[in-house]
Amino acid sequence: MTDIPQQQLPEDALRRLRESEIPGGRRLFTSDLTVNEFLLVEEAGFTPLGLVMGSSIYQIGLQTRKWSQSTELDKLTQAMYTARELAMTRMEEEADVLGADGIVGVRLDVNYYEWGKSTAEFIAVGTAVKAKDGSSWRNAEGKPFTSDLSGQDFWTLLHAGYAPLGLVLGTCVYHVAHRTLLGTMGAAGRATELPNFTQALYDARERAMTRMEEEATRLQADGIVGVQLVEKSHMWGSHTIEFLAIGTGVRSISDDHVVPPPVPVITMDR
C-alpha cells in the first residue's frame, strides 16, 4: 500500500542484539516461547536466536463520515496498515541483525495509552530462528519468513511438508451507515433483514480478505493457514469497524503431505 521508509532501529535495540554474544563464540538466545514450543521448534530443526520486536506509536488521523452512507474510511485503513507494517518491518530488521531465517510465534498487539486519544502503539513480537542445517528459508521477497503459528503448529506444518513464507494481513476500516428514522420506524416490530448493514459488513470483510490474499500472492504462497478474522471498533464508536484478516502464507515443500496416522485418543479426565 504505502512505501515504508527504511527505519533505523533505536541504538538500544542494536546494542542488545549485538551484546547477546557469550564469550566463546556462542550467543545467548531469548524467546517468549513456552517450554513445549521451544522444544518443538528445536525438534523441527531450528535454533531460537532471540526475541525480536518492533513498535510504532501512531497518531490515527481524522476522517469525516457521512451519517447515512456506508463507506470505507481510506485514511483510517491506511493508518492501521502503515502502523502495523512499521512495527513488523522493525521486527524483521531486528531478525536480520541476528542473521535469522525466520520468525515464529509472531504476535501483533495494539495498545492504547491514557495520554493519547486517537493514538495507539502497534507492537510486533516474535522469536527469531535459524535452521540448524544451514539451509536458507528466506521467502520470495528475500526476507526472513514470519508466522503467527505456535511452536506446535510450526512443527506440524513442517512435518506435513509445508514451509511458512510470511504473515499476511489485510485490513479495512469501514463506516456502516446509520439507519434513517423512517426506515427504523418502518421495520419496527418486524423480523426483517437489514440489507444495508448486511451489505456493509459483507463488503468490508471481503475487502480485508482480498487484501490478505494479494499479500499471499506476492509471496508466491500456495495457500494461507490459520486465518483469523478480527472485528474491532478501537476508539471510533460502534459504527466504525476495522476488519482485520490475518494468516500465514505457506508453500508446499514435498510431494505428499501424508503424516503417520494420528492415534485416536479419548481423554478420561474431562
Binding site: E11, D12, M53, I57, Y58, G61, R90, W115, G116, S118
Partner: peptide, 23 residues
Amino acid sequence: SLGLARDNAELSDQTTALYSARE
C-alpha cells in the same frame, strides 16, 4: 492530546522512548 490532529503520522519521539525502554 485532544485528538484533533487530522493527519496520520507516526510519533517518532514516543515510539523511540517506549521502544528503547523495552529493549
